[in-house]
Computed example of a mutant assay.
Amino acid sequence: MKTKIVAVINQKGGTGKTTTTINLGSALSKQGHKVLLLDLDPQSNLSYSLAVSSPDQTLAEAFVGAKSLKEILVEKDGLWVAPGSNELVDVEISLVTQPERESFLKSMLSQVKGFDYVLIDCPPSLSVLTLNALTAAHEVLIPLQMEVLTLQGLDQIMNTIEKVKKAFNPKLKIKGIVVVMFDVRRKLSLEVLDYLRENVQEKIFDSHIRLNVKLAEAPSFGKSILDYDSTSNGAKDYKALAAEFSLA
């Protein structure tokens, strides 16, 4: 299959973006797909969560041309990871003054072959690094909590995607919205979900990621939820999402 590059974005922190990138990637890998995860967040939560916390080279080196993207990749539990680092902050500052600053990641990814999926964990901001991800991506996946402020944030994300489509990447499309940290016992969660279904034209995946203690524990052990506890609700939910995602 042709490589599908998917940017996982939400401009708020703590929205399940990194958790979704890791565990959707792991579930796709266990389906037999070859998956690359890019940790584009200077906080490097994805790298830490998979115990890739002290890599020799990171995406920062690839952005400045000191290493190729292929040279920095680390294999972990059937996944390939391009680690992040704090140095991405400096990279972002330097990109601001560069011509075609939005296309660096697209150029880097063009040199890497053989992956079925590339999932990009974007920073929790609509930054130059996020712009690079959206310019390189074919599709966008948006993890959303069912909170009132979520709706305001979704409008901002949609507006940014439209601007990127017009300026840099006309083929970019929204893969869908993933409901995360879902608590069916909360009336508000159900109300926000109903509102989204009625007012948002984009696909909302039927597979919801429920609140799950095991999901919160897994990063402490450097594992995806599927490798940490394959019988947990978190693992079941991400397996279901991966099945739906690969058919969408």
Rank of each mutant, 00 (worst) to 15 (best):
L190R: 12
M158A: 14
E217H: 09
I120H: 12
V64T: 13
E75M: 04
S53V: 11
S232M: 09
I142C: 13
V64M: 06
K236G: 06
D77M: 10
K30D: 01
G25F: 08
H208C: 05
D183F: 04
A136M: 11
A60F: 00
V192G: 11
I93Y: 14
P219W: 10
V112K: 11
S47L: 07
E244G: 02
G78P: 04
S232L: 05
L241F: 06
C122Q: 14
L149W: 15
L226H: 08
L226Q: 06
L69K: 03
D116P: 01
A62H: 00
V8K: 14
T15V: 15
L131Q: 13
H33V: 02
E102H: 13
L154K: 06
L241S: 05
V184S: 12
L28S: 09
S49C: 03
A60V: 04
Y195T: 09
L88T: 01
L95S: 01
S125C: 02
T19H: 05
T130A: 07
D155M: 06
E198G: 05
M158F: 13
A235E: 08
V74S: 06
A216T: 08
T135E: 12
A136H: 08
Y195E: 15
R101W: 03
Y238V: 04
M158W: 09
V6W: 05
E139H: 10
D39I: 00
Q145P: 06
S29C: 04
T19V: 01
I9R: 15
S224C: 02
F182V: 00
G65E: 15
E75Q: 06
V81A: 01
I93R: 09
T20K: 08
V128Q: 12
K4F: 11
M1H: 14
F168N: 08
E87M: 11
V81G: 06
K12D: 02
R101L: 04
W80Q: 13
S54W: 06
K76T: 14
L28R: 09
M158C: 06
A82M: 13
D227V: 03
G32N: 04
L126N: 01
K175P: 08
L196W: 12
V148R: 15
T97R: 13
G78W: 08
A7N: 01
I120S: 13
A216D: 07
L226I: 03
D206K: 13
T160Q: 12
A136I: 10
G153S: 05
Y238Q: 04
L134H: 04
L37C: 04
L24G: 02
Q152P: 02
K67V: 02
V164S: 03
I5R: 11
L149M: 12
L95C: 01
L38A: 11
G16I: 01
K67A: 13
G84D: 09
L79W: 00
R197I: 04
F245A: 01
P55Q: 04
L188E: 07
F63W: 10
E139L: 05
I93F: 11
L38I: 15
